[in-house]
Design a binder for these strands. Sequence first.
DNA 1: CGGTGGGTTGAGGTATTTCAAGGCTCGTGG
DNA 2: CCACGAGCCTTGAAATACCTCAACCCACCG
Lengths: 223, 223
Amino acid sequence: MFVNLNAHSGSRLRALGELGELSRARVIPSEFKYSKGTEIYGEAEPADYVYQVVDGAVRIYKLLSDGRRQIGAFHLVGDIFGLENRAVHRFTAEAIVDTTVRLMRRSSLENVAERDAFVALDLLTMTTSNLQHAEDHMLLLARKTSLERVVTFLLEMDRRLTAANVIALPMCRRDIADYLGLTLETVSRALSHLRGMGILGFLGRTQREIVLLDRARLAELDL
Amino acid sequence: MFVNLNAHSGSRLRALGELGELSRARVIPSEFKYSKGTEIYGEAEPADYVYQVVDGAVRIYKLLSDGRRQIGAFHLVGDIFGLENRAVHRFTAEAIVDTTVRLMRRSSLENVAERDAFVALDLLTMTTSNLQHAEDHMLLLARKTSLERVVTFLLEMDRRLTAANVIALPMCRRDIADYLGLTLETVSRALSHLRGMGILGFLGRTQREIVLLDRARLAELDL
DNA sequence: CGGTGGGTTGAGGTATTTCAAGGCTCGTGG
DNA sequence: CCACGAGCCTTGAAATACCTCAACCCACCG
């Protein structure tokens, strides 16, 4: 059987363990801080490092030539990102808030992976996890309505970062919109609509803390 | 460095070579035929086999509970598909036309991959290739106009199956629409529009043979 | 305190979908 | 051999979901 780091939220934390172990033998992963809004790496730049979020949050995105932006994923605490097996990055990565990452050289990882099939399979598992996310997201982008997209997004964030019943989003409405293939106004309207339905509420000065009043009804809206 | 089966169209053929070699030692890949429209495997079914298209074409798709469909990819001659590293398939696969596939047991592949890091890296390369396609497709689905989507689709098909300047599409308009997140009418209108611009023409009784009159101008429309 | 960076809400515009009709090709059966 | 229906494609007209543009609010900060 394939080594199973176990699907989603779980996998990344365990994968961290794995990466940590690898590195123990060969490299000491170093930490680095990026302040809000700064670029960690750019699309098409050489992919020399692999990163793990220690604290904060990261968005990775692609741009069309005229500036339209598509956020491919958000990386939260524990997530590993920037792992490519070609020489260059396929996305730009930016810190959404002040963020600390742990990083290790790609080449070290490659050296180990060439010798140890299980390590290579771990990399495969991580890549598959990303692939599965992308596949699910394609379905969302191609076929879901704006309300359904926002619902799916909230459930994803709930699963990945909720403390109790409050989802403390690190990203702004525009980021959410660019992740979901919508405009920020449409996202805002969908959230207001869900609030109007009594499914969620907002908290805090900023509207980024979302209270899940009725997770069951929210889940019903997710197809 | 990672073993490089070399990115897209090329990779799959070479990967075939690799798979062939693996199997020579352990299993004899057998062939199987599926007639037009029949299911090869279903979403969430156990993933016991890995397939390669010998002749014909395959679509893989997901459905929402109410029947909305999203085609994640088309697999053409030479392509390997059905490779999962979890136990179940994440898509349904169907033959678009009468199709011959070569198949091998997943378990054989796994056994080899656990012993040979290079084989595991080959699997990683194939998975990464799928991931890259999915990432590009997300951008298309999230941010491109209907015309841009159709243009990108035509260029993809041109790259993957053109003989001379004629693209002989195996799939119907509805399949294209479900791949691009549009309706079949919108796809048809976009194609008519491109014909009106003198960029392409139709051939044959059916409208599935597309003549590329001006590839350069078509490529200009792809952002 | 004024400015800036979010966020919400409204009104109007538009790209795409939906609904509907019609054409062409092919296979089948009278 | 022709008629007929099924499948697929195109095209038009109307409906609509989402976008665009604009105003406004609020919190934060120099």
